[in-house]
Each structure stands twice: as structure tokens, then as C-alpha cells.
């Protein structure tokens, strides 16, 4: 069973639909036991960081998520919330990834919306995926590149497109909305 973390930031439905298309069973839940027992956990997110963190704290998910032991995949805001800190609402985050999240300087259009490729991808998450592949992004904040970064995207400046630390994986792009290539990445995660 795959658990999708239920919280007040959107797109749980999109991730659920993507899992359904791939033929996986899932549950959308904020129940601690169900989250601990799931084979894999997906931590989605579209929305605003400080209100999302507030909700996670109210449900004590801020304690639970960093202690999960199975493979966890953060998506978009999910990636950002797994970092130490975000400038969005000056919010202290979960601290799984040793990096911070900043707002794009307004040199080009912000939000960064659309399809973009990456460089320096590595690891099982990107099995059979090339650097020419485009994924769908929509975000105004980015995670700074650190040693845990496993893929770099360039928009205004190079930023962490994907991060991996122990059992935690995360992507700034939306694999659930990135056509067949996104589905392949989700499948790679589900087969870890």
C-alpha cells in the first residue's frame, strides 16, 4: 500500500490519479499508524509553506515525517518542506535535507511555470531517464543546491531539481503531471 500524506496543501488528488493510472493501490491519510506501515509514502504539495507547516504541526506530522523509515517522495512544496528553512513566510521546515529554500530573484518571469530539463541526474529515481527529458515545474521558490542534490535545473539560476538523503527523495517538478516521462519516474520510486 502506498500512503499519500493528507494535509492542507493541494494536489493529493493528482498524485492519487497518477498512482491509479500506474495500477498501484493507495490511501490518502494523516493517520500515524497508516503512514508508518505503508510500503512507500508520497508527500505532495501545492500551496503556501507557512500554512502547510502550521497544519503539519497541528497534526504532529512534523514529528512523524522525518522519522519515517520506508522510501518517501516529496513533490514540489513537499520537497521544500523537507528542507531546513524556507523564505516563504520565513518558515522553519522539517530539516531532512540540509539546504534552504529561497524566492527566485525577479530577473525572469516568476513563477517558473512549464517544462524544463535537468543536468547531473543520478541514482535509481532517474533510471532510464535522460537529461534531455522535460518535466513540469510550477514554483516561485527553489531549494539551493547541496551535496544531497541528485539533479539540477536551471531557471534564473541553477537550483536543486531533485534531492536524496537516506530513504527520502524529492523532486521540485511534478512527476504526476509530467506526461509519460513523469510516470516513469514515479514508477522508479515505487519500485525502490
Amino acid at each position: 500500500m502506498i500512503a499519500i500524506i493528507k494535509y492542507n496543501a493541494g494536489n493529493t488528488r493528482s498524485v492519487a490519479n497518477a498512482l491509479h493510472r500506474l495500477g498501484y493501490k493507495y490511501q490518502i491519510t494523516d493517520n500515524p499508524d497508516e503512514l508508518r506501515q505503508a510500503d512507500k509514502v508520497i508527500f505532495p504539495g501545492v500551496g503556501e509553506a507557512s500554512s502547510a507547516m502550521k497544519y503539519l504541526k497541528e497534526k504532529s506530522l512534523d514529528q512523524l515525517i522525518p522519522r519515517l523509515e520506508q522510501p518517501v517522495l516529496g513533490i514540489c512544496l513537499g520537497l521544500q518542506l523537507l528542507c531546513n528553512f524556507t523564505e516563504e513566510g520565513d518558515t522553519k521546515c522539517l530539516g531532512v535535507f540540509d539546504t534552504s529554500v529561497k524566492r527566485f530573484p525577479p530577473i525572469k518571469k516568476v513563477p517558473h511555470i512549464g517544462w524544463n530539463n535537468f543536468t547531473k541526474i543520478k541514482g535509481k529515481l532517474f533510471k532510464n531517464i535522460t537529461e534531455q527529458a522535460d518535466m513540469y515545474y510550477v514554483h516561485s521558490y527553489y531549494a539551493e543546491i547541496n551535496l544531497q542534490t541528485i539533479g539540477i535545473c536551471d531557471y534564473i539560476l541553477p537550483f536543486a531539481s531533485a534531492i536524496h538523503h537516506k530513504n527520502f527523495y524529492a523532486t521540485q517538478f511534478h512527476p504526476e503531471k509530467s506526461a509519460d516521462i513523469g510516470a516513469k519516474l514515479l514508477k522508479n520510486f515505487l519500485q525502490l
Binding site: 493510472r21 513540469y136 503531471k177
Partner: peptide
């Protein structure tokens, strides 16, 4: 559409 389509 959301069930069937994998683009935004």
C-alpha cells in the same frame, strides 16, 4: 479529465 490525463 484528471483521471485520464497526465499533463496540467
Amino acid at each position: 479529465v484528471a483521471k485520464e490525463i497526465n499533463i496540467p
